Simulated assay, not measured.
Amino acid sequence: MALRIRKSIKIAPGVRINISKSGVSTSLGVKGATVNLSKRGTRITTGIPGTGISSSKLYGAAKKVSAPTPPTPLWAHVVTWLVIAAVLWWFFS
C-alpha cells in the first residue's frame, strides 16, 4: 500500500494551494466543480456533492515517451531452442 502525504492551504474562497511529495498544484472551484492546475496538466472534476459520484478528466498531460525496445538477437532464439531440445532429450531418454 502506498503512503500519500498532502497539505492543502486555503488562499481565498475557492482557491487552494496543494503541496505533496510529487509537487505543487493550484485548485480553483466550489463543491461539485473543481479545476486543478499542476505540472501534469489541467484536471477538471465535477460531481454531485454528498453522493460520492464524480467524474474527472485530465487535459494537456505530457505524454511519456519510452525508449523503443531493441529486437531480440537471433543467437538468443537459437540458444533458447537448444536448451529446450536438450531438456526434452534428457527428459524422454
Rank of each mutant, 00 (worst) to 15 (best):
residue 42 T to D: 01
residue 53 I to W: 01
residue 35 V to W: 06
residue 79 V to M: 14
residue 30 V to T: 10
residue 18 N to A: 10
residue 52 G to Q: 03
residue 26 T to G: 13
residue 73 P to A: 05
residue 32 G to I: 01
residue 2 A to K: 14
residue 64 K to R: 15
residue 37 L to I: 10
residue 68 P to G: 12
residue 77 H to R: 13
residue 62 A to W: 04
residue 70 P to S: 02
residue 45 T to K: 06
residue 86 A to E: 05
residue 86 A to C: 09
residue 1 M to F: 15
residue 93 S to W: 07
residue 66 S to P: 04
residue 80 T to P: 01
residue 76 A to G: 04
residue 62 A to Q: 13
residue 64 K to T: 14
residue 39 K to C: 05
residue 59 Y to D: 02
residue 76 A to C: 06
residue 3 L to Q: 14
residue 59 Y to R: 05
residue 7 K to W: 05
residue 58 L to E: 10
residue 51 T to S: 03
residue 13 P to L: 02
residue 51 T to E: 05
residue 53 I to N: 01
residue 11 I to Y: 07
residue 75 W to G: 06
residue 1 M to L: 15
residue 80 T to S: 11
residue 91 F to Y: 14
residue 54 S to Q: 08
residue 44 I to N: 02
residue 65 V to F: 09
residue 1 M to P: 03
residue 8 S to Y: 04
residue 89 W to N: 07
residue 28 L to C: 04
residue 26 T to E: 04
residue 64 K to C: 11
residue 24 V to H: 07
residue 79 V to D: 09
residue 79 V to R: 09
residue 58 L to Y: 03
residue 4 R to D: 12
residue 91 F to M: 15
residue 34 T to E: 10
residue 36 N to D: 14
residue 2 A to N: 14
residue 87 V to T: 08
residue 65 V to Q: 15
residue 91 F to S: 09
residue 83 V to S: 06
residue 60 G to F: 02
residue 1 M to R: 09
residue 12 A to T: 02
residue 17 I to M: 12
residue 87 V to F: 13
residue 39 K to T: 14
residue 14 G to Q: 06
residue 36 N to P: 07
residue 63 K to F: 11
residue 27 S to D: 06
residue 93 S to E: 06
residue 42 T to P: 01
residue 93 S to D: 09
residue 33 A to E: 00
residue 34 T to M: 07
residue 64 K to Q: 03
residue 10 K to V: 02
residue 92 F to T: 13
residue 35 V to T: 07
residue 44 I to Q: 02
residue 42 T to V: 12
residue 18 N to I: 08
residue 48 I to E: 03
residue 50 G to I: 10
